[in-house]
């Protein structure tokens, strides 16, 4: 069974959801599948208007990725703090972070690539939950556990440059 077939099955069961742009006319060029919990977080209801605004801004970031817009992408050893999408260290873990930096608290969406332009997102966190770089490690481990649950026979996609992961990107 291929990773696509596994995605198909998880999607059929409802455990993975396809996240398409909120504007119906926006094209889909890249693809994002999200966990059910993350899908629900993107669609509401939300406990506060602040949470709604944060999730909707994060949604716009994901939709920019899906619609094929230029995305700034950071791979180690770059330390660019402004990149929209970053491969976290240790890079061998292949855990990526979409960074929605405005407004505070900043939102982070964690996941892995199954293929070029095919991102599987599992977890969201507010940036202010991370006081130091060490605080990222538990989230990365959780992301890896999610991956093993969904794709026990597959390692995430691995590339050597930003363009290997995301077409039409801007490496920073």
């Amino acid at each position: 069974m291929s990773v696509r077939e596994m995605i198909r099955e998880w999607r059929a069961s409802g455990d993975l959801r396809l996240l398409t742009p909120a504007i119906p006319s926006t094209a889909c060029v890249r693809w994002v599948f999200v966990s059910k919990a993350l899908f629900d977080a993107f669609h509401g209801p939300w406990a506060t208007t602040g949470e709604e605004k944060n999730m909707m801004r994060a949604r716009a970031t994901m939709d920019a990725f899906t619609s094929g817009q230029r995305i700034s992408v950071r791979l180690p050893p770059s330390k660019n703090v402004s990149a929209q999408l970053a491969l976290l260290e240790d890079a061998r873990d292949e855990v990526w972070e979409f960074r929605c930096r405005d407004p505070d608290p900043q939102m982070r969406i964690f996941g892995r690539f199954a293929e070029p332009d095919l991102f599987i997102a599992f977890i969201k966190r507010n940036r202010d939950e991370f006081k130091s770089n060490d605080d990222f490690q538990p989230v990365m481990e959780e992301c890896k556990r999610h991956w093993r649950t969904y794709f026990p026979s597959y390692t995430p996609y691995r590339g050597s440059s930003a363009h290997d992961y995301v077409s039409n990107c801007y490496p920073v």
Partner: peptide
């Protein structure tokens, strides 16, 4: 939230 989406 909608306005935030459109702004972003």
């Amino acid at each position: 939230g909608t306005r935030a989406y459109l702004q972003e």
